[in-house]
Write a protein that binds this DNA or RNA. Sequence first.
DNA 1: AGTTTAATCAAACGACTGCTTGAGTCAACT
DNA 2: AGTTGACTCAAGCAGTCGTTTGATTAAACT
Lengths: 237, 237
Amino acid sequence: MTIAAHAIKTSNDTRGDSTRTRILDSAEHLFSECGVNGVSLRTIVAHAGVNTAAVHYHFGSKYGLLEAVFARRIVPIAKERLDLLAKCHQNPSLPPLLHQIIAAFLEPGMTGRHGGATFARLRARLAADASEETRSLLVQYFDDSSGQFLKALAKALPNLPATDLYWRFHFMLGTMVYTMANPGRIQALTKNECDPSDMDASLAYLVPFLAQGFLADPIPKAPIMLKSYKNNNKPKP
Amino acid sequence: MTIAAHAIKTSNDTRGDSTRTRILDSAEHLFSECGVNGVSLRTIVAHAGVNTAAVHYHFGSKYGLLEAVFARRIVPIAKERLDLLAKCHQNPSLPPLLHQIIAAFLEPGMTGRHGGATFARLRARLAADASEETRSLLVQYFDDSSGQFLKALAKALPNLPATDLYWRFHFMLGTMVYTMANPGRIQALTKNECDPSDMDASLAYLVPFLAQGFLADPIPKAPIMLKSYKNNNKPKP
DNA sequence: AGTTTAATCAAACGACTGCTTGAGTCAACT
DNA sequence: AGTTGACTCAAGCAGTCGTTTGATTAAACT
């Protein structure tokens, strides 16, 4: 399932672009606010001030519109990620710094440069959606760069078994997505001391937390027993 | 917005219970698979083999059905959480163990005892949904126990400032929700070496990771500068 | 000039949405 | 035996959904 021809249009038509862009902007905003199934095309076109048929002319279908909304932001994000990752390897004699790799992975998608909190929330919604269509969207754009980051992390953590690394990478995705998705969950709990919609502050707390987590001892192999951390724990080194 | 009277029915009617329960089971399954807006009542009643009107008779509305689905699982989960937390304090002379507290928070919702992966996925979907109705559902059932866990964590980490603790608690929620939501995202990436739908394995890797993250040094106060982990990046526009 | 082509419009299509109605069923009461 | 009240049913309500149509516009090309 590839991106439809509608979605990769790049011409500079004098009329079409403003309509196209306004649809994309409205859709991005409303999709992220209400979910793809939670908002109708009629609501989107009303918000954008365009005709209903324009959506199908430019994007083919509602799902084609979603693809286009997604592709517009995700391509620059993926590129910036890899650029930042390259900078982590500037000094080839030293292993890349864990903090730097993590920040390179998280920053492009979380700061305001590529759609900001709005697009971040949409990504979080899609991440929670297990449908085949949605999943292919995410995999298509992210799996390539994810592989490169896994390699860099493996180099920075040479003593960590691959399995542990994969799990921790998965957990990192979780903290990222959840932070992007939640514009207010902890706030109520903490008298506004934490503001997860402040992505810069989120990153400042998130990166050291994750780096420390990556540095944990690997799980002892052999049958995985929950008891290893239940009941009588040994103190950590 | 409180749980509707429809949702707290507890009688043992000879006829009604099977219909009620079958609707709840089908709704739980389909909500978690397709999202609340992604599935129609007609699909639910067809799957349950009951009449459309039965949903409105028993639950009042589609949202009432969602509330009932949610309440049925979440009440036992919250109770088991607090029970496990109490066990962490059995020896009052020692501070509670970090691993134990984290496990007490995560286990009840992730293992198979309360709806298993199906209900977990639904929770993850709701967590990504920023709508007012959904948010109140989560807050209503979780904020109380969350407060108690924050207290326990603060006792186990006496040197960690409250703000850092809140953020890390937030990150813990993220890893939990994302792991519950994703029945296959890393699998493709790692040749099936990690299986996030295996909640026991997830927990075995997740708890030590989080515990180590909680043990990270606090963020230095004063103006939060991203530069603290960004080596020599040019200033961003 | 006339022709072509991309873009926008109002109007409508059938299918589907959550929800209601009123008649009917069956067990438990007086 | 007869009434009550909880429950289930087929049928249908008004409204919304994504999508399509055919006419209309206006800029670009010959």
